[in-house]
Simulated assay, not measured.
Amino acid sequence: MDRLHGMKVFEKVADCGSFTAAAEACGMTPQNIAKIIAALEKDIGAQLLNRSTRRQNLTEIGEMYLERARVILADVEETDALVSHFTGEVKGTLRVSVANTFAIYQLSHKLPGWLKENPGIRLDMTVTNREVNLIEEGFDVAVTDEEPPDSSLIRHRISELPIILAASPAYIEANGMPASPEDLSHHTLLVRQDQTSWTFKGPDRSLITIPTSAKYLANNCLISCEMAIGGLGITKQPLFRLRPHIERGELIQVLPDYPIPSKTLSAVYPQRRLMTLKVKKFLDFLDQEFGHGQLM
């Protein structure tokens, strides 16, 4: 069998925890995954996985083999990267996780042109706001506005993301314009399920945090924006998402004198001794298209 391919499949099974999840990640069937693992075990003469449950747990030998296999696969990847740096040829699968709002309203407009310039790239992009585990899930890069939970990851800052509040003219006419963050307790807020409070900067630059008690909860920026345009309440979103609606008069900025602390859009990726050319090219693309200080 192809021992290197077997190691890659074994690493994926170990990271995903089951043949089914690994098969989905690799674009294979669970039966093929099982056959590859069985062939690998036969070649090395040892059992790597326990199969007594739905999840495939590592044996003691499997844990030791996985540790060495990761080193070997990383060395192979970095060797390929070294060749790519000399040849200048960008190729291979680029697995990227991208935050929803940025992916849909910014990246999607620029990405086709970059992919046409780099025909050797096979893109595998996941659009999600959930926190992904780059190592276990096999992502090369995550583009996010959240702080990376793992300090061993490298954070490449791209731009600042100003955040604002906005509501429709009809809503403001019916309910009045809030004069301070404290006034929001008398208004209808359109809030994500994970938002229990909103924070503002006061005139003296001190932070003001208010609890959010929402009648309408939605974890999708498009839904919240349309609800705000429809006069249902006040939404909190990146400026680049709401600006077109403000320019068309569909929304009005709320509490402009109490700015919300901005977020930082970053590309996060695992530590490597030598960055692969596909990752470097992608980071250069993000800097060129979106690295202008603030994403407006």
Results as ranks from 00 to 15, higher is better:
residue 59 T to Q: 06
residue 160 E to Y: 09
residue 52 S to N: 03
residue 155 R to D: 05
residue 153 L to I: 07
residue 98 V to S: 11
residue 134 L to F: 15
residue 33 I to E: 00
residue 47 Q to N: 09
residue 39 A to W: 05
residue 47 Q to H: 14
residue 55 R to G: 00
residue 145 D to N: 08
residue 126 T to Q: 10
residue 83 V to T: 10
residue 119 P to N: 11
residue 33 I to T: 07
residue 101 T to D: 09
residue 101 T to Y: 00
residue 40 L to P: 06
residue 78 E to C: 02
residue 73 L to C: 11
residue 49 L to F: 15
residue 34 A to K: 10
residue 128 T to Y: 01
residue 106 Q to S: 08
residue 70 R to F: 08
residue 133 N to G: 12
residue 60 E to K: 07
residue 53 T to A: 15
residue 73 L to F: 03
residue 160 E to N: 09
residue 117 E to F: 05
residue 89 E to H: 11
residue 107 L to R: 02
residue 117 E to L: 12
residue 102 F to M: 02
residue 48 L to T: 08
residue 96 V to R: 10
residue 146 E to C: 13
residue 133 N to E: 15
residue 154 I to E: 06
residue 139 F to V: 08
residue 37 I to D: 00
residue 85 H to C: 01
residue 152 S to K: 11
residue 123 L to R: 13
residue 156 H to E: 01
residue 137 E to W: 15
residue 106 Q to W: 01
residue 94 L to A: 10
residue 132 V to H: 02
residue 144 T to M: 12
residue 77 E to N: 09
residue 44 I to Y: 08
residue 140 D to C: 02
residue 83 V to Q: 05
residue 93 T to C: 13
residue 140 D to W: 04
residue 66 L to I: 12
residue 103 A to I: 04
residue 126 T to S: 04
residue 125 M to P: 12
residue 49 L to D: 06
residue 93 T to V: 11
residue 41 E to T: 02
residue 150 D to H: 12
residue 99 A to E: 09
residue 110 K to G: 01
residue 137 E to N: 11
residue 134 L to C: 12
residue 36 I to D: 04
residue 154 I to M: 12
residue 42 K to E: 13
residue 109 H to T: 08
residue 141 V to H: 06
